[in-house]
Design a protein around this nucleic acid. Structure first.
Lengths: 336, 336
DNA sequence: TTGAAAGCGCTAACAT
DNA sequence: ATGTTAGCGCTTTCAA
């Protein structure tokens, strides 16, 4: 049984109010009483019951987030950034993991709402076409992170996905590749946007894209293996590509491996560029990669959330998208 | 403002009790009333206030965990396994991330206790010599995950770290390496245990370990770079090692890269074995690795926790350690 | 089958 | 400077 305010009050022959005041740093308590209370509080390891406090004050000082999974390079960085900003303001972030399942996403969202979180963040799966029902008529502010599905009208913080494609293409062009291939991810809205950005960047410079250079990763295989296989086929086309943009770092690693095995040199004969900027994959291969700005996304989302909580429905708040950024390593040449 | 039981009750001219009963599936309510209530509940998107319920019943159906960080290959798998087992029993897991900081570990532990979690899990940092104060006299069950610091007398679920070293050594021996080196991690209790296991495995077979083959990774560098540098020096010794056990997959990747660059073949001339079994690192390099059983650790810890919650202080529960397991890929040869 | 009363631990507002 | 009262939203208990 945890200690209650009342236990301390009875102990010291004081009222619960006095204890409560001391604990919250109210000033209308004598220094002596304060000292006695604090002493006993520490001795007994008293810890206030947040639920009871929240019930009374209507403030739980907690914010919920639902993420599809916990692994990978993106989510952990995002969540740590959110946690840090929230912590500074006395909020704590409650993470609910849905294990990639839409039903769990709904359950976790409801749980958060039942816990009276003051705001709810939702990290949208790349392949999601919709969001859980509970978010749609939530009584607390909701912020989406990642892409915003069509026709969903909630505040969101996302990435300019087309720029992932265009940034990669532009960099390869600057590094004197002219025959640029794209190894695209599975059919999701996000993957499509990246391809679009890629195509537009090439078109803007009047660089042709041959359709046999636009390869989709076989979804039966792991991304690495799929890219490994895919790139071999790609290299049999004539002319051969001299630069490859990949939809993920793992796919880029697959390309590097296969190319080296086949006797091509990276970056001299073929330049490679990945996406995700996962240090564990990029460092071993010296992969140039597109960073998806997880930390910055988290900070922006956190600040937006805090403003929403404070200022109810501030009309000045608008959804925003951030730009990805290029991180150059050795799988691309020095730009001219 | 969220909807309350009372709102629904007034709406339907019933008492809050009736609504409450319907929601909890009590049977002493007429079918008709039940239907009316459920209809309105859905229309209004009513969600019970978990805090208020918990205050009354003393059950929050939530369990807290504090982890040092969210990234890497171990924690996400652990947390997902815990989540899944708890979910089946109607508990939800609240994850608190300490960003690798001991002070935050204490804060997050206190927060969980303040939230009246029914049990508290704590994932011990590898370099931790102690655990947060709040865990030591917690009024709810505490389970440690990972290694248990000396003189801490709490239930724990951990890995037999020495077996990580011995399993690796034994496998290399079975694959006909005789000059086996060890690339050890930074000075932590866990790293020491692994080295111990490694040494003992060699000693048991009367295989000598030369001290220049026991290299510690330079902690100024990333693990990959440190291993890359370390292995080059190691290969200048005479005789040269023909097998290397690494304290992490990333270090193993560094070894592979450096060796290939220097013209050595893996696994023909030198066999490499990593630890962690992180798919993203192991697959590209075909790394044989020691799996740290994160998922199984999670399941065991979850079951232990549930029993602790139910059976108060069940004397039959004891700390346990699980064995790591070997995952063979292509950086080691076929055993003879 | 339905409902009234009391109280979980805490704090806002108001006495004393 | 300290204490009293009332009530947050819910459920246990018991009465109608």
């Amino acid at each position: 049984m945890p200690i209650r305010l009342r236990d301390i009050a009875q102990d010291l022959n004081l009222s619960t109010m006095t204890i409560s005041k001391v604990l919250r740093g109210q000033t209308d308590v004598s220094a002596e009483t304060k000292a006695r209370v604090m002493k006993r509080v520490r001795e007994l390891n008293y810890r206030p019951n947040i639920a009871a406090r929240g019930l009374r004050t209507g403030q739980t000082s907690s914010i919920g987030i639902v993420v599809p999974r916990l692994g990978g390079a993106f989510i952990p960085v995002l969540v740590e950034a959110l946690t840090e900003v929230f912590r500074r303001d006395g909020y704590s972030l409650i993470v609910g993991c849905a294990d990639g399942d839409a039903e769990n996403e709904e359950r976790e969202s409801e749980l958060h709402l039942s816990r009276q979180v003051e705001a709810l963040l939702f990290c949208v799966r790349e392949d999601a076409a919709d969001i859980p029902q509970p978010l749609k008529n939530s009584s607390v502010p909701v912020v989406l992170i990642g892409h915003r599905p069509a026709r969903i009208n909630l505040l969101s913080v996302g990435l300019r996905e087309e720029e992932v494609g265009s940034l990669a293409a532009t960099h390869l062009l600057a590094c004197r590749s002219r025959r640029i291939a794209y190894m695209r991810g599975r059919r999701t809205a996000v993957a499509d946007q990246r391809v679009t950005g890629f195509r537009e960047a090439l078109r803007d410079r009047n660089i042709p894209l041959r359709e046999e250079w636009l390869v989709e990763l076989d979804s039966e295989e792991s991304e690495f293996a799929a890219a490994y296989i895919g790139v071999r086929k790609m290299m049999q086309s004539a002319p051969r590509p001299d630069g490859i943009v990949c939809s993920s770092d793992l796919a880029a690693a697959g390309c590097c491996s296969a190319l080296q095995k086949a006797g091509f040199t990276v970056p001299e004969q073929v330049q490679i560029i990945g996406a995700g900027n996962s240090p564990e994959i990029c460092e071993p291969f010296g992969l140039t990669s597109i960073d998806l700005s997880a930390a910055e996304l988290g900070r922006r989302a956190a600040r937006m959330t805090l403003r929403l909580i404070r200022e109810a429905d501030d009309a000045s708040l608008r959804s925003m998208t951030l730009s990805p950024s290029l991180v150059v390593r050795t799988s691309t040449r020095a730009p001219s």
